[in-house]
Simulated scan of single mutants.
Amino acid sequence: MPEGPEVQRFADQLDRVLANQPIVQLTARTQVAKRWLTEHPEMLLGREIVRVSAFGKNLIGWIAGDYYFYSHLMMWGRWTTFTGVPPHEVDRRERARIITATGGAILLSAPVFQLGQGNPYTQIEILRSLGADILPQSSEPFDQARFVEALRLSQPDRTIGAALLDQSIAAGIGNYLRAEILFLCQLDPWRRVGDLTEQNLHQLCQTVPQVARRAYETGGFTVSDLDRTRMQQDPGLVYRSGSEWGTRHYVFRRTNLPCLRCNTPIRQQKQLVRTDGTEEKTRIIYFCPVCQQVSINLKPRSTKRSTADTTI
């Protein structure tokens, strides 16, 4: 699933192509957006797209006249942009197409695309409940107070590994960011939120926006330049020498590879992240058992270096 940094890059991409341009054509295949277009025929044609922005994993296009378009990419969605003449053929994965006189954007594979008038932050349920944005506008700092308050209001028995995936606590964190954040904070993913110290909270407040910004600026890399060079030069630190696989992160998808800090093999484990009383949802968490002082009992690790797990 695209996380905050990836969605912000999509928003930047759309903003460069669409901002300050009147809409020539807008089509949609999602049920909600199709119904809106039927009820408001040609309402958006000729209206200028003011800007495109992101908040966490959510992308919003602001349209003149107090209108908007909204998308959530979920697991496989992505935006593509073009300049000049739009592609004639319609990809079967296409969910929306926005065309201006100079170019446009096409949404692929995303199940969530909506149109509306008014403030999307009050009209769209998920936007009303979001926590601090991990990648706020460049002029704004990460809202540490909001983040800490949301953590403290969370269930004290909840694990920090589960809490970081809660978008009402921090908007934009997904599986790879939470693994990297917890590693850099040297935090056990199974540590209870109620047991976090003031130092733990301070580290999280510093690390969350730093890791998000690093991933945004580098196209998804969270390791430092120095550590990436180490992995590129030492075949023992990667799955396959010469491949980028295994050089992007400290722990995420580096199962059985040596920790870059203590040389202990990185582990992975399913972690309960949510339950609704009838169904439990788990996600794979990657970690260094030594650096993060992991408290749970771990099964003997496999000595096979496998990249088979592709859980995001």
Rank of each mutant, 00 (worst) to 15 (best):
P2H: 03
E3F: 01
V7N: 01
V7T: 04
F10L: 04
A11L: 03
R16L: 13
N20K: 14
P22L: 05
V24A: 14
T27A: 12
V32C: 05
A33P: 03
W36K: 13
E39A: 14
P41C: 12
L44A: 11
G46R: 10
R51V: 03
S53P: 00
G61L: 03
W62N: 12
Y68T: 10
L73A: 03
M74D: 04
W76Y: 13
P86A: 12
P87W: 07
H88G: 05
E89H: 10
I99G: 03
T102Y: 05
G104W: 05
P111I: 03
Q114H: 10
L115D: 10
G118V: 04
N119F: 01
R128H: 04
A132C: 11
Q137L: 09
S139R: 08
Q144L: 02
Q144F: 04
Q144T: 15
F147M: 06
V148K: 11
E149C: 05
L153H: 14
Q167S: 13
A171R: 04
G172P: 00
I173E: 00
I173S: 02
N175P: 02
Y176K: 08
F183L: 12
L184D: 02
C185H: 10
L187I: 13
D188M: 09
V193G: 08
Q203R: 14
L204M: 09
T207P: 06
T207V: 08
Q210H: 14
A212D: 07
T218G: 09
V223R: 09
S224V: 08
R228Y: 13
R228N: 11
G242T: 09
R253H: 15
N256Y: 05
C262H: 08
N263G: 05
P265M: 09
R267N: 06
R274W: 15
E279P: 00
T282D: 09
I284C: 07
C288D: 04
V290G: 00
V294G: 09
I296V: 15
S302H: 07
S306N: 09
